[in-house]
């Protein structure tokens, strides 16, 4: 399996992550801390999916906030308005989002670089405008409340239950993503990043695999978005806004593009950051912007690249 081994062997990392996730609850002394931890886990899920698209396959998306939010809205509306069981409405929501992503993939992924960034941004903004304006369904700018989440007759109310659910989701996702990356399919995705002609010349239908990874990343975003909507009991258009999409992209880049656990680290840091900055309330946006600029200038390969440097030395 040497061909598939990347700079880091990913297998132990999954175990370490599981261990950390098991230990964290001892640090979560109240519900508020739990809430932040759970949010970080859901963000990490979206970032891992987005990283498959951006970091590995090299296709930027400035719409993943919108996809996550829309997925959440669909699940929430199906449960709240049409009385579907939460599990079922999430499944339907993911199906709809997969179809939407598949339909968008061909025209959008023909574009590259700035054009791709702009097209995805346009899609994201249109989604958020729709969510803001369809008040009948979505509650408009004020958002809407979401029914509580129940599974096989059991209603999730305790924070630790949600933490467990989110952590399991993240671990399974990491395992699947790892398998994906270390496979012939993953090799195709990584080749797209460098040159589309190379894979095409050996028989790869490039458009098909771009669509596939796009659909996967959108479905993951929608799943995390739906679960988060049920967890927080409330969803607003901000969850699907432009800034949210940027935030997700920054998570991936901050952690390290094309590095599986980079996305997780980026998501955790960026989720904690606003909490750490609450005492600088007025300066929050300023500091956030400065961090993005600083990382892009001084650490363009992300935080994980620091570990590489340390490891090479050691």
């Amino acid at each position: 399996m040497r061909a598939l081994a990347r700079r880091w062997n990913l297998r132990p990392a999954l175990g370490v992550t599981a261990l950390i996730l098991a230990l964290v609850p001892w640090m979560l002394s109240n519900d508020f801390y739990y809430e932040i931890a759970i949010l970080a886990l859901f963000n990490a899920m979206i970032a891992v999916g987005l990283n498959l698209l951006m970091g590995y396959a090299g296709q930027i998306s400035l719409a993943h906030g919108a996809f996550a939010g829309l997925g959440g809205y669909i699940a929430a509306i199906l449960t709240g308005r049409y009385g579907l069981a939460p599990l079922f409405s999430i499944a339907v929501s993911l199906g709809i989002m997969a179809l939407l992503a598949y339909g968008l993939a061909r025209p959008i992924l023909r574009l590259r670089g700035h054009y791709l960034a702009m097209a995805t941004l346009g899609v994201g903004i249109i989604v958020s405008i729709i969510l803001n304006n369809e008040e009948e369904l979505t509650g408009g700018t004020d958002g809407m409340s979401v029914e509580s989440f129940s599974l096989f007759g059991h209603t999730f109310t305790e924070s630790w239950e949600w933490y467990l659910l989110a952590a399991l989701h993240l671990l399974v996702l990491l395992w699947l993503a790892q398998n994906l990356i270390e496979s012939p399919l993953g090799r195709i995705l990584r080749s797209l990043h460098d040159s589309e002609r190379a894979p095409a010349s050996v028989g790869v239908n490039v458009a098909r695999y771009k669509s596939l990874v796009f659909v996967i990343s959108v479905v993951v975003a929608a799943l995390a978005g739906s679960l988060y909507a049920f967890f927080s009991g409330f969803i607003s258009p901000q969850e699907a806004g432009f800034n949210r999409s940027i935030e997700l992209v920054v998570m991936v880049v901050l952690g390290g593009m094309g590095r599986l656990y980079g996305a997780v680290i980026g998501a955790v840091i960026l989720t904690l950051l606003p909490q750490l900055l609450t005492s600088f309330e007025d300066y929050q946006t300023l500091i956030y912007g400065a961090i993005i600029i600083g990382v892009m200038i001084f650490m363009p390969k992300g935080i994980v690249s620091l570990f590489d440097r340390w490891r090479r030395r050691g």
């Binding site: 930027i60 700035h114 960034a117 940027i246 992209v249 920054v250 880049v253 946006t285 300023l286 956030y288 912007g289 400065a290 961090i291 993005i292 600029i293 892009m296 200038i297």
Partner: peptide
């Protein structure tokens, strides 16, 4: 792209 988005936020 992300760098200039950072400028905007800053």
């Amino acid at each position: 792209i992300i760098l200039t988005l950072g400028y905007a936020i800053f």
